[in-house]
């Protein structure tokens, strides 16, 4: 049994410190220590993408990322995507364009794969703002959906690209 060590990293912009064996997967620390259960276990072998999170902006399979590799890094999970609207104590949220698009296009059935799909799509759109269907399918191919909601997921990613493009345009107009 390996000895727990103190590991510091940030999650959704907040500094965090955990005491954990260095080999323990990031996914379990997020879910069990930090109560962030949006990232899911689907396979534990980097085959399904249900556990996808962004680490320093890149999609990682958190089920196989040892805590030691997360030390000092910035981790972003589904819980960090929606924006808490300022001045709003009740906490209305603005969904991230990708979340909004998955909602609009019904990009899920059971929804268990959805957080992983959304995180993967966020990475894709940050790199490729206007992907075509083939690019979407290639970028998402390591994420599994057993409900096979694939057509609606592709539609959702396409829609997210459109929403993001429109909001870029309108903010340019405001400027």
């Amino acid at each position: 049994m390996s000895t727990p060590i103190t590991i510091q990293f940030t999650v959704n912009g907040k500094p965090r410190e955990v005491l954990s064996p260095p080999e323990r997967p990031l996914l379990e620390v997020l879910r069990e220590d930090l109560a962030l259960t949006g990232s899911k276990y689907g396979c534990g072998e980097m085959q399904c993408g249900a556990c996808s999170v962004l680490v320093d902006g890149r999609r990682q399979f958190s089920c196989r990322m040892p805590m030691s590799s997360a030390a000092g890094k910035a981790v972003r999970t589904i819980e960090g995507l929606a924006k808490q609207n300022a001045g709003d104590q009740g906490g209305t949220e603005s969904l991230h364009p990708v979340q909004q698009a998955f909602l609009d296009e019904a990009g899920f059935q059971c929804g268990y794969c959805t957080c992983g799909m959304i995180m993967t799509a966020v990475e894709l759109l940050e790199k490729t703002p206007a992907p075509d269907d083939a690019q979407i399918s290639a970028a998402m191919n390591r994420n599994l959906c057993r409900c096979c909601a694939y057509p609606n997921i592709i539609a959702a990613v396409r829609k997210a690209a459109t929403i993001a493009e429109e909001s870029r345009k309108s903010s340019r107009e405001i400027e």
């Binding site: 259960t37 979340q99 909004q100 899920f108 929804g111």
Partner: peptide, 27 residues
């Protein structure tokens, strides 16, 4: 009609059976 709890799905707040947590819970 869209799935009524869709917003909980896309924000990761819906608790699936594997997400349920109880006080003092063990694994």
């Amino acid at each position: 009609l869209a799935r009524p709890n869709g917003p909980d799905i896309v924000t990761g707040t819906h608790a699936y059976p594997s997400d349920i947590t109880r006080p003092g819970m063990l694994y």
